[in-house]
Amino acid sequence: MPYGAPDPTDPNVLVGVELPADQEATRDMAWVFAEEFARMGFDAPRILGLFRSPFYAGAHRALRRLGETEVAAIIRECIGVFGAHTRPPDAEVTGGD
């Protein structure tokens, strides 16, 4: 189906469907990703790593659209709230080789 140019007479192809999409939707998406992963216990470098990975398409696109400075600020604010105020020291949280 999708190897050629879209055929406007094909009822299975999305033709002329407008999806509302703006900078705010991207920003909201970035906030949600950062907050959800902060709640799950990720630290700031791990969340930023997720945004940097092209294989997490939504987060990565938000990073490219908003820029790393804004995404880092979003992550900082989320970590400020959900960043484990009762957790043991960093060594136990981050781990890894």
Binding site: M40, G41, F42, A84, R87, E92, G95, G96, D97
Partner: peptide, 13 residues
């Protein structure tokens, strides 16, 4: 479990 549950990351090795 607690709201601020500690997490432990398995080493890459």
């Amino acid at each position: 479990t607690t709201v601020e549950e500690p997490i432990h990351v398995r080493s890459a090795r």
